[in-house]
Amino acid sequence: MALAQLMLRRIWSRLAQSLVLLGIVSMVGFSLLHLTPGGPLSQFTDSPGMTQADIERIERQLGLDQPLPLQYLRWAGNLVVGDWGRSYRDDAPVLSVIAGRMGQTFKLMLAASLIAMTLGLLLGVFGALRQHGRFDRGATLATMVILSIPTFWFGLLVIYVFSQRLGWIPAGNAAPVGDSGWLVALHHLLGPAFVLGLVNTAVWSRYMRSAVLECLGQDYVRTARAKGVAPWRVVVRHVLRNAWLPMIALLGLELPSLLGGALVTETVFTWPGMGRLFYDSIANRDYPVILGMLTFSAILVILGNLLADLLYGLADPRLRRR
């Protein structure tokens, strides 16, 4: 099939572009990290039992005495073959440290995205259909309030109200040790997913609202009405079919903010995911893990955008051929 062939070619060319992008991102990340004050050795220099000779030995051992470009090349070369280095803290391989935390973050992001998309799209659509109506004004105000509140504060507020005061949800953690029931897990997920989801709901609803408004004013909507198409059908088939196209692109664009939001949310809710790991690694100056996390997030975001692009190409007939 010509379509499949074309898609394949597009995937390959986009993958090649993504690799270049990833190279640049990792280089910038690597350099920035080494520019930060403290340096990778600070956790050793800070401990009182260390002599100058010890430090120099560790420096050599970790390859930190080499020039920065060489350090980068060695790190990047190892990265490609799957050796992401070892954590300074417990000597565990970075890749397995990240892999151990990935599941919880994905669970949180998925739940938050589901909340954000359903709520956001609904708010956006119904707001736009009755523009400047009571519902629209209420939704606009609510989304503005949520967007203006810092996530950490919002998270603390949710913990205070729903956990401390009302006792509806646990204050943090994924699940108590030893308890693996899915209901318990879901109960623990509620708080952080709600916080992370609501922030993204606000973004989604704003985008969806303006997309629907734009499509409502299009000539083809007038054509549909002139044909005598039923109002609900005009909305579903003509307005929404077109309005959701930019939302696919948003899916890719929102991934970084979702990851960033997860960092704060996970820290507030002591959720054992990648965000927490990132935060803890920075606190501990665990350079290999920080670098690994940076690279991993970059790969995720690039892959997410690639996926969104390909989906967009499938969903919009104007992009299918060419």
Binding site: R222, A224, P231, R237, H238, R241, N242
Partner: peptide, 27 residues
């Protein structure tokens, strides 16, 4: 609106200008 809708397209047809923007691009 329902009465007008029953008429539009059935008893009164309309052809608009600029068929690029007047046709739905995704159908």
């Amino acid at each position: 609106e329902p009465a007008l809708r029953a008429l539009r397209g059935r008893r009164i047809g309309v052809v608009f200008q600029d068929p690029m923007s007047s046709l739905n691009p995704v159908l």
